[in-house]
Computed example of a mutant assay.
Amino acid sequence: MNRIIIIGGGIGGAATALALSRAGFEFVVYERAKELREVGAGIALWANATHILNKLGLLEEAKQVGYLTTNYQFNSQRGKELVNMAIDGFELPVIGIHRAELHQLLWRNVPSEKFILGETFERFERKNNQVHAYFVSGLSVEGNALIGADGLRSQVRAAILGNEPPTYRNFKTWRGLTDYIPNGYRPGYIQEFLGGGKGFGFMMLGRGKMYWYAAATAIKAQPDAAMGRKKELETMYQDWFPSILELITATDEANILTTDLYDRPPNQPWSQQNITLLGDAAHPMLPTMGQGACTALEDAYVVAKCLKEQSDPIASFQRYESLRFPRTKAIVEQSLQSGKMGELSNPLAVGLRNILMKVTGSAISSSFKSLHAYRA
């Protein structure tokens, strides 16, 4: 195989580049941004993802720049514990890490000439088993195979499967980063608080950073309130667990990001001959199970393994998709289910949900465990 073209240099694309590099392949990553950088948000790398970092030889470095997480706790909006899951029972740790730190860790370990920045993919053609990729700038390149790791609104996906828009899931999220550590924080914990039609969570990342996230039901593309993002959040969460307001107040407005939440109903195929998709381009999911970046890491490792085991990219991509589809479908559906639980706004329904969570704590815990016990 002479060369693999990767479109998109985010976490999925960078992980694919590293996995292919470790497997001895020729590849180049084309990224439309002018510089490689990830947004200021945190992620939890569950054991299924730290397994991949371990396989790629990055686990020790990730532990140094991340924070070891031991428990995942769900609470009512005022802070009454509903479920408390120990998540440190695996042979691999759970790590809270800044997206940018993870991104750097991946691409620092790939030769920089393998990343071509400022190139936006436009279309492709197939000629004699080769894929020719064309970019907006006029650049054209050829390879034996092409992997689209270009996110939720993937141009590669549109080129092979048609431009079907993703599905808006009635939620808007805010994410913040601060050095402030509230009094109510329990070291090692991811703490989530669930109210009516909204929720809030926070966790420690490495380097003394606290990451928090909020979600609330909203109409699509709902603009910020006139009072500004920070004031709006302070108003929304004023009567919640005290640490929540402390965290919002301690965060600079410039460090509060907002996004609408989308996914896609899981469908096959996501490959076409010698072209395939990976991460959000293939199976975008809601962040409720915290598995978006984790499944992208799994994809990257599995696609490289399939290419190594089978020299024909068409057969490799079919194998990759058949291995990945059942797992990612289950997680997309579970994440959506979880999101629907968060949409409840009637106080009675919220009360019932909270009781249900308390009662079924061990079932919730074991479903989480099976998700994280998976080893790609």
Rank of each mutant, 00 (worst) to 15 (best):
G151I: 11
Q238S: 15
G79K: 02
E26H: 00
L297N: 12
G12H: 05
I160L: 12
R375C: 09
Q222R: 01
V350K: 03
Y237T: 05
A100W: 05
T120R: 15
P187L: 10
D150N: 03
L257F: 00
E343D: 14
Q64G: 13
Y189T: 08
T259F: 09
Q238A: 15
P242C: 10
D150H: 08
P313A: 04
I95K: 10
S76I: 04
E125W: 00
R37P: 03
L146R: 12
G195A: 15
V156K: 01
T360D: 01
G79P: 03
R32M: 15
S335Y: 08
K34I: 03
V28P: 00
T235A: 08
Y30C: 08
A349F: 14
R207C: 03
G201Q: 02
G151H: 04
E35D: 06
R327Y: 05
Q334V: 01
P284I: 04
E298T: 09
S370Y: 07
G12K: 01
T295W: 03
N183C: 05
F200H: 11
V94S: 07
I219G: 14
M227W: 03
S21Q: 15
A225C: 01
N267P: 00
K34H: 11
V303D: 05
G66L: 12
R126W: 02
I43H: 07
F74N: 11
E321N: 14
R229Y: 01
D252T: 04
D263Y: 05
P166K: 08
N274A: 13
E343N: 11
E298D: 07
G143V: 13
L247N: 09
D299Q: 07
L36P: 10
V332G: 01
S335T: 11
W270F: 13
A225L: 04
N128D: 11
P326R: 02
H103D: 03
R375H: 07
K172W: 03
G199S: 13
L245H: 04
N84V: 10
G118E: 06
T249D: 02
A281H: 10
M227K: 02
N54Q: 12
N71H: 13
F193T: 12
Q238D: 14
G290Q: 06
E142T: 12
S243D: 14
N267M: 09
I147R: 00
T167P: 00
R319A: 14
T178H: 06
F241Y: 13
D299H: 08
K220D: 13
L261K: 10
G228W: 02
K230V: 02
C306V: 15
I5Y: 08
V28G: 10
S154E: 10
